[in-house]
Design a protein around this nucleic acid. Sequence first.
DNA 1: TTGAGTATGTCAAAGTCCTGACATTGAATG
DNA 2: CATTCAATGTCAGGACTTTGACATACTCAA
Lengths: 155, 155
Amino acid sequence: MDMHDNPQVKPPHPAEDVLDHVGYRLKRAHASLRSAMDHALREHGLTVPQYACLEVLAARPGLSNAELARATFVTRQSMNVVLRGLQDAKLLTRPATVETGRARPTSLTDEGRRRLNAAQGAVYAIEARMIEAIPDDRLTALLEDLDRIVRSLTD
Amino acid sequence: MDMHDNPQVKPPHPAEDVLDHVGYRLKRAHASLRSAMDHALREHGLTVPQYACLEVLAARPGLSNAELARATFVTRQSMNVVLRGLQDAKLLTRPATVETGRARPTSLTDEGRRRLNAAQGAVYAIEARMIEAIPDDRLTALLEDLDRIVRSLTD
DNA sequence: TTGAGTATGTCAAAGTCCTGACATTGAATG
DNA sequence: CATTCAATGTCAGGACTTTGACATACTCAA
């Protein structure tokens, strides 16, 4: 994999070929992950947003709709739909009313924990495949660089 | 940013904290990029899928609906909707009929090229911000690792 | 030639997600 | 206390995307 340009010189503007764009590579990697998770979770009767919601909720119980939305990178409106679906499926519960404020804390039901645990096996297998594919001494750098991208775009 | 585990030892299963998952970091980075592009392209009257379609089409003229769909990681049906929108906006043209086969080659109009060029400025600025945030000697490794992820999940 | 297999375009229906908007609630400020 | 502000939950509408299905068109092998 030889580069035409001097690797020391940062290109003044992105590579001409779309395939060399950071954005394109990032999008493609995310699409692969999304597709793999879609297929893996389908056998567990969960969508990716639903799984993400359950996963976050297991780690941080009692989060409200708005907090879950931020944690999973969707809008409050989208998360509201997800929560209603999971609530109808008896995988989580929300108090109808709350003593103070409007935010209603969300809790996993026993059934929700069971479904999540079952699905986590499939998802962790995907995570393991990704980790396995990356040289050990690069993994930390990769995670750091992904975070750098986030910071560079959100500031 | 200290690690609790020995960095030499590959964890037998993914980190306990969701925030440390490769999938989570990847998803977050993609969400940041998507959001930044959404805002940047809105001022140019284009959606991200529309821009992606125009960008690919400029680099590889004559692609069909199915080929554009694969290049932008959406289904043929989704791309079909995008193409009709761009066609209605006079940004590209497709022959009503074709001599052989069913695939209709798509071509940018002059107006399509103008709109794309205008939008590329905003998008390339985002690309530049990402590149700038990543240490020069890591950029190549980052792109490689993203590709490794793709391969590990598509095989 | 015939057939199976593959690829393409398209339609229909449903799900998902977003923008925009509004009312409610609590905190902060004067 | 009154007002302003930010945050939350929710509704409505539209845009986007997907799954599933079907017909058309080419390719290849029997």
